[in-house]
Design a binder for these strands. Structure first.
Lengths: 233, 233
DNA sequence: TGTATTTTGTTTGTCGACAAGAAACCGCGA
DNA sequence: TCGCGGTTTCTTGTCGACAAACAAAATACA
């Protein structure tokens, strides 16, 4: 974390909020700040060397995206992961995968495709390097690039929210053990790119749905595994 | 708006932001604040008799919901209605109508149904009274109640956003002339309620799609009418 | 007269401070 | 030892003030 001299890094005006927002967001999505952890404003202000006002503003934004929960007159905490309603998450992300991939097949430009391929390359590299954290992040960016290519800001917004939430669920299990990163996802992504490039809407839909089913199945199996570990006799 | 004595209404702590948020939101959705109108913080602070801080916080929340746009270091303005990408709005709201109505048919409780019927009653009353403003608002609440009954917070969030946006589009045309409020919507709503109550998913889907088609067609016809008005020779 | 530059003014972004609630703490009594 | 009321402390919500950034007006110059 390297602090010490407190460099007082003369930030440009207006960049403060964005900076805090980015830091907080990353720490929440990578579970450095675990769900339920309280966020103290003054402490954060000291750590990031700025006033409470920009911190507060960033927190409001994060609350709007559902990443933190603000208890009135009480501390704001990192939003909990709701395992009881996990099915609503699965339902929604499956639908968004399908819809955005379909739209990407219809409306993508050459630049969109290049960006999608870039993200896929980064994803493949992360899987090859057995870097779970990078894999999770680049998987999110891959699907976000597809959503962008679909040119529907409403779907894009919901997709971002769901993908971020998914990052947290995945991070829960790919913490330290870098074993058996699912290389099949790389191939599935390649197939999706091919379908999009061919502007094959029906095939894009099918692939997106299968891909979503894969992820759902994996998270569920991870959940089940976790449950067994918690049983003690 | 009756000012004058500046009653200094001792608000409870923490209610300030919510108050400002509500006022701003209503004025934006009812087009009292037209799209593109600049929002001056200090002016608002004077009008609502509070500091700039809560106003700022409310603006951040509104920006998160896409109702205002914040230009950095410049005034924040009421978000524009993007007629060029109206089709993305139609696409998204049709999908949300279908999905939430389907889910409502599956998961609704007796209380949900009662709430939906309440909103429908208010909608019918507004149509009977030829009160366009009330009709627009209660139509939004009707579909929001259905979304709530669907028990999926992700769909619910996107639906709210789309319904609010729709309020602005509709308000554009139902400004003063209270002529021919479409009474057919009342019947369509009734049919949807019947399908939901019968837990008939397929029929709910069909009705929701037809209802969405109706609204899309109406907005498009209003748009065309408006365009003709704007042509000058 | 038109254009570049300085000056002025207005609005936002950030700061430190203060007051209101809520939680933690303490003392007292049973 | 436990429960209860009051007090203290800690955190948030709100405020007024100041400085930076941008826009517009005023000025200088060709």
């Amino acid at each position: 974390m390297a602090s010490g001299t407190a460099a007082k890094t003369e930030r440009k005006r207006g960049s403060g909020v964005q900076y805090v927002y980015g830091v907080l967001r990353d720490e929440i999505l990578e579970l450095t700040l675990p769900p339920g952890a309280p966020i103290d404003e003054v402490q954060l202000a000291r750590r990031l060397e700025m006033s409470r006002t920009p911190i507060r503003e960033a927190l409001v934004r994060l609350a709007g995206e559902g990443l933190v929960t603000t208890l009135p007159n009480r501390s704001t905490v990192v939003a909990n992961l709701d395992f009881l309603n996990l099915h609503t998450f699965f339902d929604a992300i499956t639908l968004m995968y399908r819809v955005t991939t379909r739209l990407a097949a219809q409306y993508h430009t050459a630049d969109d495709l290049a960006l999608i391929r870039d993200e896929q390359a980064r994803f493949a590299r992360a899987v090859a390097a057995h870097d779970a954290l990078a894999m999770i992040a680049s998987n999110r960016d891959f699907h976000a690039a597809i959503a962008t290519a679909g040119r529907n800001p409403y779907y894009e917004g919901l997709s971002h929210r769901l993908l971020d939430e998914g990052r947290r669920y995945l991070r829960l299990y790919y913490a330290g053990f870098e074993d058996r990163l699912p290389a099949r996802y790389v191939q599935e992504h390649e197939d999706m790119i091919a379908a999009i490039a061919a502007r094959d809407v029906a095939r894009s839909d099918t692939l997106a749905r299968q891909h979503a089913d894969q992820i759902v199945a994996q998270i569920q199996s991870l959940l089940a595994r976790d449950r067994r570990q918690h049983i003690e006799l």
